[in-house]
Amino acid sequence: MIDYEYLKPKDLEEVFSLLKSYGERAVLIAGGTDVMVNIRNKKLAPEALISLRGLEDLAYVKKGEDGYHIGALATHRMLETSSLVQSELSALYDGASQVGSVQIRNVATVGGNICNAAPSADTASPLLALDAVAVLRGPGGSRKVPLTEFFTGPSQTVRASDEVLVEFEIPSEMGQFGSAYHKHSRRKAMDLPILGVAVSLKIEGEIIRDARIALSVAAPTPMRAMEAEAYLKGKKLSDDVLIEAGKIAANEASPRDSLRGKAWYRKEMIETFVPRMAHKALERLKNR
């Protein structure tokens, strides 16, 4: 029968020391919306849960001279209601505001969403398209890992067992990009994406100066479609160019057939939504 200690450390040092003494027997819990479900479904059977909710100072969204900083304990609801995220990191707003329900978003954290490393994580593609860097802290100090290198497989990341994800950094340059994320799902709430597409674009006149395209549920981990990005760079904006980018991105992806969607359909949706999200990103840039 499931039985665990519920540990509530007050600061990171205490987290590290608990992680050290419990090792693999402990699981970190932030909002708990995944962990508690996994325990109930018997996918997890920890001897201890180490709660990160005591680290209240890691729940923030702010902008500094060196870029945007999002604390790992920021809830989806915080991102959704942040005017900074809404206006300057719009794709992240799209992703965060469509996770589960208000009840879930009130407690689920962005750090948890990323560390859970589901291919379907709704904040993963937006953060990838915004060039986010994950800041990990361990007993020996901090290290920074670009999100492109963060995921190593389904439910797997580069986070070492004695490390805690503390922050995402987004370069200030990304503020000049327009961005948008589409969650393709059967329902408008309480759903996982069949496919997620995030696009961020920087434009000068008619020329696409820079682009990021990120995809969820298109591969074993959330991914960037870098060939499509490279294709777009320097091109003159047109429907044809965006459609072509969608095709390239679809080719880069390696989605699978699952209960939630067929691979061919997912590829089609990449083709469909790369241009649509590009248009939405540009529209937002215009209206800023």
């Binding site: 059967r186 329902r187 408008k188 709430a189 309480m190 759903d191 996982l192 209960l259 939630r260």
Partner: peptide, 17 residues
């Protein structure tokens, strides 16, 4: 039954309006 939960059994929500 492969989808014995409300996540994968798509009963409509208020938001589907």
């Amino acid at each position: 039954v492969m989808n014995p939960n409300f996540l994968d059994y798509k009963m409509l929500t208020a938001k589907d309006n």
